[in-house]
Computed example of a mutant assay.
Amino acid sequence: MLRVLLSYRYFILSSIKNEFKARFARSKLGGLWLVIHPLAMVLVYALILSELIQVKFPGAAIDNAYPIYLTAGVLAWFIFSETVLRSLNLFIDNANLLKKIAFPKAVLPIILLGNVLLQSLLLLGAILLVFAFLGHFPGIQILWLPLLFLVTLLLGFSIGLILGILNVFMRDIGQIVPIIMNFMFWLTPIVYTLAIIPETYRHWFAFNPMAHLAGAFQDVLLYNRAVDLSIMGVLLAVALGLLSVGAFLFKQAKAEMLDQL
């Protein structure tokens, strides 16, 4: 992997740059659309739900904490969902490259992750500006964000890689996964807190990895709390395990995938 990064670094960087430009070709606002969509969603939820969800946020730096809680969760969800959904079509979207050009296949996921990371950093910059407007400034615990970005990206890509391989052979996967992601969004404490969930059902959220990741982003950006390294270690181990499964499936099915594409 390191040899691929070094040998093809210019190709990788130019591909990330070109894909970013192509996505917003002929758009007046360009990359601003990357942050407008999620921030617009935050605004809608904040306006509609802030009065309905009367929850105290003990330890929060400001009184009007719900928009910040919501925005931090949306950032975590954006990184995860963008990685999963783009990985889902990684091989289908790059069918011509895979079939006609000889290059290390490891370059494709690196380009994908680079694009998602670039978009996520732009969104983070916009979010920090919104926080400043609200009078909230994250503390020193913001230094945990690189770890949270890494775990979220790896988890999203490992899941997306497995689904992307299956999607080559069963195209219904590409239709089902976005529906599942919609359900998963509402099963993750982003627009609501666990405090409004009956205690009988709260333990089920422990099995949702995004509940832990969204909570970690909210802890860092809203409460200025440190990350629970034991939970992050478990999630990282799960991500690496799934990534190994995906790499094994790709190695076994590579020839058949090229025929299907």
Rank of each mutant, 00 (worst) to 15 (best):
G73M: 13
L113W: 05
V55R: 03
I176A: 14
G135M: 09
I142N: 00
L261I: 13
K21I: 15
N182Y: 10
F103R: 01
L34I: 15
I79F: 02
V116Y: 06
G215N: 13
Y8A: 01
N94I: 03
V107K: 00
V191C: 03
R3K: 13
S87N: 15
L154K: 03
F80L: 01
I36R: 02
G246A: 05
I165Q: 08
L13H: 07
G59H: 05
V177C: 09
L32N: 02
M41C: 01
L134W: 12
L134C: 07
V35Q: 02
L121N: 10
H212M: 09
W204E: 03
I197M: 01
K105C: 00
M257T: 12
A40P: 05
Q141W: 09
L34V: 14
V220F: 07
I140A: 13
L236I: 13
D63K: 11
L75S: 00
T188G: 09
L153K: 08
Q175C: 00
I12M: 10
I165R: 08
V55A: 14
L85W: 00
V116L: 03
V44C: 06
L88M: 05
F78E: 13
G139I: 08
D219P: 01
V55S: 10
K105F: 00
L98Q: 02
V130T: 11
L88V: 06
L153I: 05
L147E: 00
R26C: 02
L235F: 07
I48N: 00
M184W: 15
A247V: 14
A61S: 14
